[in-house]
Structure formats: structure tokens, C-alpha cells
């Protein structure tokens, strides 16, 4: 605040407008650059998935196909193996998310509203679990599931997915319960409500938005997982992401348009969830508990 009169100087105001035009151009230019980076790949996936084969495998590629075809989408829905993977994805991601939220909600509430010895240590142990390398856990999980006969089953996938969704759920729900005032719980206690009543009758109904958001994150993480599903699921229980790798990769000539159409199909449920639940997802994401 040294020299307030300076802002009133005429020459400065002129440079000010010039600067503003320059800033505006910079903003627009920057926007175009990042928008091309962010959206061209999606456009390209879409275009490839409807371009007839002879045009896909010609060089240089055309940014707009001369004719379009939906045969690759039909191929997906006519392929029983892919449909099975798709169903597996729904079963595994859904069960994982439901059970992680159900278990995580009690832990989150306890971490947030109770005080006992070891609470902080346990909390940070569970937080740090999101930072343990999945690949390392995978080796022992594989042996463990092989030993108890769970290898190549839905259980192997649900349990292994829970290893990354549970810490996420506990942490997100703890964050949510932290925002609820203690008085709410105290008042219920004064009215003679038991802890179970407090949780099920009072907290869970209030916490619905947080439960939905947590469920969505757990579902997305499970839906998107690749390496656990590839290694532990076996051909019958594998989800779509590794299923696509097995179906299309390692052929002599990868069928890119088929792969792009299938890629859009596997991305679609997530994008649809996102469109309807954007508010919840952005709030959860910016809380910082979620893996980027």
C-alpha cells in the first residue's frame, strides 16, 4: 500500500488495458492448447471406433472418416466372452464398493467420534495402506488364495479389491463424520439412544451424500482395476479391463477399431455415473483422500 495514487496515473491505466488484452489472448491460447491435449484423444477414440477397417489401416490417418460404421459395437455385444467380462465387472466392482462402505462407515465413525488408546496409530496405519505397492501385496494374496482355494473366483477379486477400497472408504467417511457436530450425538445420548440407534437411525440417514460419494469412488476404483483382476480372476471371473487385454492384445495385428469401441463401452458406465454424480465426485476428489 505504498503508493496508492499510482493506480490513478493515466499511462498506467493504458498499459493496464493493454495488459488485459494480452492476458485475455494468453488465456484463450492456453485454453486451446490444454483442450486439444485433453480432448483430442477422446475424439480419436470415438472416431476410430466408427471408422471402417480399410480407412483405419491406411496411412496417413484421416481426422474425419469418409463413412462410418457401428459394426465394432455390434461385435462387442455379439461376443459372449466380452459380455461375461462386463457382467463380472458389475458384480465385482459393485460387491466391493458395497462391502467396503458397509465396513468403512463404522470404522470412519469410530475414528472420528471416539477417543481410545491406539486410535491415531490405527488411523495412520490405514491411511498409509493406500501407499503400499499393490504389486507387492499381490504376490502373497495369490499364494493365500491358492492355498484356501479361492483363486480364480469372485471372492479373490472382491477381497483383493477391498485392499485398496477399504482404506479409501474409511478415510473419506472419517473426513465426513469430522464435519458433523458432536452435539448431534450428545443430544441423542441424552434422549437415551444407544450407540447402535445413533448410528443407524441418526447418522446414516444424514450421511447419505457421503455414503453415495464413497460408494462411487470405491466402485470406480474397482471397475478400473487391472492387475489384480488379471492375476487372480482366471478366465471365468475376470473383469473387462484385463478381459480386453486378453481378447485384443498379442494378436499379430491388433484390431484397433474393435479395441476402441470396447474401450468406450468399458468407460461409459463410469462417465454416466459421473454425469449424474459430478457434485459428489468433485467434493470427494478435492478432499484429498482419493488416489489421483
Amino acid at each position: 500500500m505504498t503508493d496508492t495514487t499510482r493506480t490513478l496515473d493515466l499511462p498506467d491505466m493504458v498499459t493496464g488495458t493493454r495488459n488485459r488484452t494480452r492476458d485475455r489472448l494468453l488465456l484463450i491460447g492456453g485454453f486451446i492448447v490444454v483442450a486439444v491435449f485433453a480432448f483430442f484423444p477422446i475424439y480419436w477414440m470415438l472416431v476410430t471406433s466408427v471408422t471402417p477397417r480399410d480407412q483405419v489401416f491406411s496411412f496417413p490417418p484421416r481426422l474425419l472418416p469418409a463413412t462410418i460404421t457401428l459394426e465394432y459395437y455390434a461385435d462387442f455385444f455379439n461376443n459372449p466372452a466380452l459380455l461375461k467380462y462386463l457382467l463380472n465387472s458389475f458384480i465385482v466392482a459393485g460387491s466391493t464398493a458395497v462391502s467396503s462402505v458397509a465396513i468403512g462407515v463404522y470404522a470412519g465413525y469410530s475414528f472420528s467420534k471416539f477417543r481410545y488408546t491406539g486410535r491415531r496409530a490405527l488411523m495412520f496405519l490405514i491411511l498409509s495402506a493406500q501407499m503400499f505397492p499393490q504389486t507387492l501385496l499381490l504376490i502373497t494374496l495369490y499364494l493365500l488364495f491358492a492355498q484356501i482355494g479361492l483363486l480364480n473366483s469372485y471372492w479373490a477379486l472382491i477381497l483383493s479389491f477391498t485392499s485398496f477400497t477399504l482404506p479409501l472408504c474409511v478415510w473419506m467417511l472419517k473426513g465426513y463424520f469430522d464435519t458433523l457436530p458432536d452435539e448431534l450425538i450428545e443430544a441423542a445420548k441424552v434422549d437415551g439412544a444407544s450407540q447402535l440407534t445413533i448410528i443407524h437411525r441418526i447418522l446414516l440417514p444424514i450421511a447419505r451424500p457421503a455414503l453415495i460419494s464413497t460408494f462411487l469412488f470405491a466402485f470406480i476404483r474397482g471397475w478400473n482395476d487391472f492387475i489384480y483382476a488379471l492375476t487372480l480372476g482366471g478366465a471365468d471371473h475376470m473383469t473387462l479391463p484385463p478381459g480386453l487385454v486378453l481378447t485384443y492384445m498379442g494378436e499379430f495385428q491388433t484390431s484397433w477399431p474393435n479395441l476402441m469401441a470396447s474401450s468406450l463401452i468399458v468407460s461409459l458406465p463410469i462417465v454416466v455415473l459421473y454425469i449424474f454424480m459430478q457434485r459428489y465426485i468433485v467434493a470427494g476428489l478435492s478432499s484429498g483422500a482419493v488416489k489421483g
Binding site: I103, A107, F114, L137, I139, L166, V170
Partner: peptide, 21 residues
């Protein structure tokens, strides 16, 4: 009660995260 509420998460954590690691 607080500890009992964390227990299921804790057991699961021990079996599918800590032990494998």
C-alpha cells in the same frame, strides 16, 4: 464401543493388506 466399531475393518486390514505386505 469405539474399538468394536473399528474391529471388522481392522481384521480385514490385517488379512488382506498387512499380512500380504
Amino acid at each position: 464401543i469405539g474399538f468394536l466399531l473399528v474391529l471388522p475393518a481392522l481384521i480385514l486390514f490385517a488379512v488382506i493388506i498387512l499380512y500380504p505386505l
